[in-house]
């Protein structure tokens, strides 16, 4: 192993500082006794307590959680189905177009996605609220899920499904009993990804949200315009914690899955 040179140490420090210093400051000040954001007056958790009494924030948090759970679940179902059809399906007319289109939202500017959804909701006369946010988040999270799941399906041994059919499964049973359990880790990390994407989305949610429902990021954003309060810091810290846990779990699952896959491939190679 090469030792870390001073150059490496410096660039590493700078990199991490850029990435995490703002968040660290935010987390630290969420435990500040004083109401003044820039002056440290001792450790306290009182802002977290105060947060619990703030109806508006709690409402927004509840909406956000509901939206995240529903939209990520819906996105996972749709994304998995799309991935399955794209990887497994017979050639059908327009398949290339379809598979290209499913990835388009990945590169589409969020403002445009949000705006077009807004126009759609107005066009079909849908009242903006929790449901429209769920739909909007499902739309953009679905392609992330389908990317994660289809990359797993590409390496999935087709003969396993054939073996299931051969042993008497209907095509749906083969999917439920064999394919799904084996690709489950990819599906779960897809869900977690969709969940965290939904939690911290501001742009698309602002287009899709109406007066009846506001998500936490929207609430924070509008609160901050009136001035940063330690309460917001506390709230943000909680969100950082949730997102961190989600991302770490997702990457652990996919890493574990990669290790298992490698091991399976090795044993297969040894006998081949």
């Amino acid at each position: 192993m090469t030792r870390l040179s001073w150059f490496n140490v410096t660039s590493l420090t700078l990199g991490f500082a850029f990435l995490y210093l703002p968040m660290v400051i935010l987390v630290i000040f969420s435990f500040n006794e004083s109401r003044l954001v820039t002056v440290w007056a001792g450790f306290s958790t009182k802002w977290y307590g105060e947060l619990l009494g703030n109806e508006a924030f709690l409402d927004a948090a509840w909406v956000t959680l509901k939206v995240a759970v529903f939209s990520s679940t819906l996105a996972t179902v749709l994304g998995t189905m799309a991935a399955y059809v794209l990887v497994r399906g017979r050639r059908f007319p327009g398949r290339t177009l379809f598979s290209g289109m499913i990835y388009a939202p990945l590169v589409m500017p969020e403002v445009i996605t949000g705006l077009s959804l807004l126009l759609l909701f107005i066009g079909i006369g849908l009242d903006r609220g929790v449901m429209t946010i769920v739909l909007a988040h499902t739309t953009f999270a679905m392609c992330y899920v389908s990317v994660v799941v289809s990359s797993r399906l590409m390496t999935f041994d087709r003969s396993l499904e054939e073996a299931a059919l051969d042993l008497g499964c209907s095509p749906f049973e083969a999917f439920r009993l064999v394919t799904l359990p084996i690709i489950a880790p990819a599906v779960i990390s897809g869900w977690l990804l969709a969940f965290t994407l939904s939690l911290d989305d501001l742009v698309i949610a602002s287009f899709a949200a109406g007066p009846s429902a506001t998500t936490l990021p929207i609430k924070i954003f509008s609160a901050v315009r009136l001035g940063v309060s330690p309460e917001i810091n506390a709230l943000s810290t909680i969100m950082i914690a949730i997102v961190t846990v989600g991302v770490i779990t997702a990457s652990l699952i996919s890493k574990q899955n990669a290790v298992r896959q490698q091991r399976d491939e090795q044993t297969a190679a040894r006998t081949a």
Binding site: D157, S159, L160, E162, A163, L165, D166, L167, C169, I182
Partner: peptide, 15 residues
């Protein structure tokens, strides 16, 4: 799945 035929796959295809 409706045939009274079973196959042992070249790759074994164990679950």
């Amino acid at each position: 799945n409706k045939r009274a035929v079973n196959m042992m796959f070249q790759s074994y295809a164990l679950f």
